[in-house]
Simulated assay, not measured.
Amino acid sequence: MPVEAILTCWGNSHPFQERRMSLSEPAKIGRSVAQSRPTSSNAIFDCKVLSRNHALMWHDNGKFYLQDTKSSNGTFVNNQRLSKGAEESSPKEIFSNDILQFGVDVVENSRKVTHSCIIATLKLLDSDGREITKSSLSNDSSSVVVNNVQSHEFYQLLQYLQEALHREQLLESKLTVVQQLVQATQESTENNWQNLVNEEKLLSRLETLEKQLSICSKLQPDGSLQQELITLQNDKFHYESLAKNSLKKVIGEKVEAVKKLNDVERTLNNKEEECSHLKDVSQLIQTELNALSEKFQDQFKDLQNVQQQLQVYFSLIMKSCPKFRNCLFNSRWLV
């Protein structure tokens, strides 16, 4: 028969089914992931406060050991933490009836949800099926039982304190909500009272106006009031007709101004088109002038070259033919 460890849900633990693990090889305790799912034969739990590799349990030379493997929220044996956060603990010998706690309760502030930790009572069986307890390894069994009972009571008291703290936090949050509601109620009451005062003032004002109207109606005879109403209506019609005529005149002037503006815009567009056309013509003429200038420069250079050649030929003729030179000289003299 293999060496086994049995974990049973205890106290305010995150709920889970009893786990019966074989310790022929070290057993990993941790959070459920895709590659490792919870079963009745392992110590994998679907609990958010556990680390993926939270702790390790094994059997060696007739003894059982538990070690925290750098978990975030810690491992506890009989309410004693094995190591600080994110530090690996030294192996801790464990026995049956020990209370194991993996992680701590975590309150999620955004949703006011508490995620519970794993709390379990431990039962260890050797290869012969015997339960391994402190009493079986110690002569003073009575003191061990008393200590065991005291640790159970102490742990239960701690759980009660944690529940009380949690309830206190809930009460504080509810008290805050109540205070906010009271404040909102006070503000609403003050606003309602102010509205009531304003309503009373308005009613008193209306009553005063009604009294003044009744006094005026008594002082003025019916015929004069009717005549005044007729006069006011005639004035109203007169002012309305004047306003309509003025409005028609303004509208006519506006229409006229819009027409003139359209004509001016049309003329401006035509002038802009003419300017652009003249600009194009000017550019074309400038281009032609530049071409003619270049052509003139070329012909002028050709003319200079021809004159130079004529001078050279003339000098050669004068040197080679004395008769022609004399004849030319005589012709100049005669002239």
Score class of each variant (00 low, 15 high):
residue 7 L to C: 04
residue 8 T to R: 05
residue 10 W to S: 05
residue 13 S to M: 01
residue 18 E to P: 02
residue 19 R to Y: 02
residue 22 S to V: 13
residue 30 G to F: 00
residue 41 S to A: 05
residue 41 S to K: 14
residue 43 A to V: 01
residue 46 D to I: 03
residue 50 L to M: 02
residue 50 L to D: 00
residue 53 N to M: 06
residue 63 K to N: 13
residue 65 Y to N: 01
residue 70 K to V: 03
residue 73 N to P: 01
residue 73 N to D: 08
residue 75 T to A: 03
residue 76 F to Q: 02
residue 82 L to E: 02
residue 87 E to H: 05
residue 89 S to R: 04
residue 90 S to E: 15
residue 93 E to N: 02
residue 98 D to W: 00
residue 99 I to N: 01
residue 100 L to G: 01
residue 100 L to E: 01
residue 105 D to Y: 03
residue 107 V to L: 11
residue 119 I to V: 12
residue 119 I to D: 00
residue 125 L to V: 03
residue 125 L to S: 01
residue 136 S to N: 04
residue 144 V to E: 12
residue 151 S to Y: 05
residue 151 S to H: 15
residue 158 L to H: 08
residue 159 Q to I: 04
residue 161 L to P: 02
residue 164 A to L: 09
residue 164 A to V: 09
residue 164 A to T: 15
residue 166 H to V: 10
residue 170 L to V: 06
residue 170 L to N: 08
residue 174 K to W: 03
residue 180 Q to C: 05
residue 184 A to I: 04
residue 195 N to C: 08
residue 199 E to N: 13
residue 203 L to P: 03
residue 204 S to Y: 07
residue 205 R to N: 14
residue 217 S to W: 10
residue 218 K to A: 15
residue 221 P to A: 04
residue 225 L to I: 14
residue 226 Q to T: 07
residue 233 Q to Y: 06
residue 233 Q to H: 07
residue 234 N to P: 02
residue 236 K to N: 07
residue 236 K to E: 08
residue 238 H to P: 00
residue 240 E to Q: 09
residue 242 L to D: 12
residue 242 L to R: 12
residue 243 A to K: 08
residue 248 K to C: 13
residue 250 V to W: 09
residue 251 I to M: 10
residue 251 I to H: 12
residue 251 I to E: 14
residue 254 K to A: 08
residue 262 N to F: 06
residue 266 R to G: 08
residue 267 T to H: 11
residue 276 S to V: 09
residue 279 K to T: 15
residue 279 K to Y: 05
residue 281 V to T: 11
residue 281 V to W: 06
residue 287 T to M: 12
residue 308 Q to Y: 08
residue 315 S to W: 07
residue 317 I to K: 15
residue 318 M to C: 14
residue 322 P to I: 02
residue 324 F to A: 14
residue 326 N to G: 04
residue 327 C to W: 11
residue 330 N to H: 14
residue 330 N to F: 14
residue 333 W to I: 10
residue 335 V to P: 05
